[in-house]
Amino acid sequence: MARKWGRRSEDQQYFARLSRAEVWQHNIVWISFVLLVATGMMSLIPTDWVTTMFGSYTTQVYYYRRIAHLVLAVLLIAGSIWHLAYGALTEAGRQMLKDMIPTYTDAIQMKQNIQYMLGMSDFKPKFDRFDYREKMEYIFGLIGTTVIVLTGIVMTFAPYFPKFMVDVCGTFHLCEATLASITIAIWHFYAIHWKPGQFPQDTSWLDGMVTMDHLKHEHPLQWERVMRERETAKKRSDDFSFLDTPSTKRQFNNLPEMEEE
């Protein structure tokens, strides 16, 4: 059954690919990123386009654009700090960062996947929790955010820095933002919006859940691991099924005894 706009169908099995914290970190970053690009690029695109959009309010819009850009930058920095703290201080975050580290296997898989896509090979590599595409995007995002934030701070407090440094930071800020926008539009938007089977969107950004079918197809190694874990858990549950009586349940769960009718 087709699923639409985050509604989950009941005949599908789901897997929590993102935790609630990760979903909200993603939401903060993407909302601030999109609005930062919009408010930032307004000073670069031809004036006529902006005046056509906002008419007689252009000057006011341009004035509030700067304030909005600074407020959104604070939001992006806050989201990024939360993400880093989550990665450093929580077990799930540490595991996520560990899984995100690029390995030699990723390079091999990238080569194998390109060969497969080109039709030069029938072998399709099996990806784990994060494939080379996601790792590339995450690392580019990490570097890009660091560059954007540091240069943005220098530009905001420009009078306290040498002019050449402000000019260099301005150039980096602008170029990095352009590069990031283009890569997000091509790389990320294809993967989560335009790829057949994903349209109109990958709804995991809403609750972090993906279907088991999606996991099996896109991340087969993780799917196999999850299935093994589920089977082991089920088996363990079956082995102790003889304990599954009301009295033992109460005993194990330390629940107060219910009055029998």
Partner: peptide, 10 residues
């Protein structure tokens, strides 16, 4: 890369 992916996915 994404165009190749689109082609193979289809």
């Amino acid at each position: 890369h994404q165009m190749l992916d689109l082609r193979i996915t289809l």
